[in-house]
Design a binder for these strands. Structure first.
Lengths: 117, 117
DNA sequence: ATCCATAGTGACAAAAACGTCAGTATTGTC
DNA sequence: GACAATACTGACGTTTTTGTCACTATGGAT
């Protein structure tokens, strides 16, 4: 049962999932928003100092398009925009958590492995 | 605490994790090997008909380099090579499972969402 | 002699992702 | 008038990733 989404075909939910969370900073952004939300752009920037602003905005736009992140604009000057996880976005918590956990295990594994000589 | 791996710097386990499981076919390959293993190259090809052989081999090589997949070569003709998950590779099961589950939820969400007009 | 199967490799092209730089708009403060 | 803060956008180039094509090796079967 093929899924059509944004002019592409996906053959499993897994493939679809990877296409929407697969960007360089997306898991990081979602992780930030799971810790604390809402967050403003400049707050996300502070939490992810290795990402540049342009990239963060692009990834946020895509997450918004995919309905994973909600964007709330306040009509004030200077502009105020808040980002939040949607309901389906919040459901990514097990994905993010399991990746973090495995990553920590893998780091430990690499360190143990490196000591073997 | 910065992690150095393959000439790059990673600032969290999560970043490291994403760098090793982030290839186009890696989660798919790991998923196959979680279902059934060992598997030979041509068996993986049959299970992932949308990937071409060249890509599968490249991704398998990287997974092998990262010690996630084990490669066993039998000195026979025609060649026989079996692929398996390593111990740390097997530990990716929660990651793969949570991605699959969320992907299915997301697919349902998209379908429900599309019906709203 | 030719073909088959398996499991590859090398070179290259195409596409996607990523990063950098400069610039926009608004209102308020100095 | 200059500058600051916020949240952007556009254009562009680079890098990375992915895909395609042709090619290799071996021994057995026909």
């Amino acid at each position: 049962m093929v899924i059509h989404y944004k002019d592409k075909e996906y053959f499993t939910g897994k493939d679809l999932a990877l296409s929407v969370i697969g960007g360089r900073w997306k898991i990081a952004i979602i992780w930030c928003l799971l810790q604390q939300s809402p967050l403003r752009l400049n707050e996300i920037e502070k939490k992810l100092p290795h990402a540049n602003q342009r990239m963060l905005i692009r990834q946020l736009r895509e997450l918004e398009e995919d309905k994973i992140v909600l964007r709330r604009v306040y009509p004030v000057v200077p502009p105020k925009v808040e980002y939040d996880l949607s309901e389906i976005g919040l459901q990514l918590e097990p994905v993010v958590t399991s990746i973090c956990n495995w990553g920590d295990d893998f780091r430990d594994f690499l360190q143990t492995d490196a000591k073997k000589d």
